[in-house]
Design a binder for these strands. Structure first.
Length: 157
DNA sequence: GCCAACGTTGGC
DNA sequence: GCCAACGTTGGC
């Protein structure tokens, strides 16, 4: 059982977008990085939990928790010439890009800001805090998960 | 296989 | 808007 962190730009897809989506579920598409693809395709398991992180915005940070509900799905936006994520090298018979479905578990009452994450010594090894890091999918350790969920006393059932 | 050039990411 | 850091591309 691994925990994860999923980055998204809220202008593209925010936690409120997820909250108002049908079944509060969405397909996590558009990832076009091989390291992240490998985690989406090979490592994520149904039932695992992930932090939902807003990046490249006024207030970057963790805004909630989602659950992985479906894995092993090719990212069909790669096949769509009209999609901004179109990649002609990805073939239906041999998809290059994959995604997972996620369902909203909890929107935090307030953001756990990047600044807060940076100032907690227990979180110093978080991948997204490393200088220059750009990975949009990263694993989170048990200790990091406990530390962050404790901010709002979140206990998954 | 090397590596310079380029486009993108993302905090500030 | 700036720019450092990074991943990818493509010529050689």
């Amino acid at each position: 059982m691994t925990y994860w962190l999923l980055k998204t730009e809220p202008t593209t897809f925010s936690i409120d977008d997820l909250s108002s989506a049908p079944h509060q579920t969405t397909f996590w598409d558009g990832v076009r990085n091989y390291q992240a693809r490998n985690m989406l395709r090979d490592a994520m398991k149904v039932g695992e939990l992930a932090f939902f992180y807003h990046s490249n915005c006024k207030q970057p940070g963790i805004v909630g928790i989602v659950k992985i509900t479906q894995v092993g799905q090719p990212d069909s936006t790669a096949f769509d010439p009209k999609s901004p994520y179109y990649d002609p090298r990805s073939k239906i018979e041999h998809p290059t890009w994959y995604g997972v479905s996620v369902k909203l578990v909890k929107k935090f009452p307030a953001i756990v800001s990047l600044d807060t994450l940076r100032h907690d010594p227990k979180l110093k090894d978080m991948i997204i805090l490393r200088k220059g890091n750009r990975l949009s999918i990263t694993p989170i350790s048990d200790k990091q998960w406990q530390t962050i969920t404790n901010v709002y006393k979140f206990v998954p059932q």
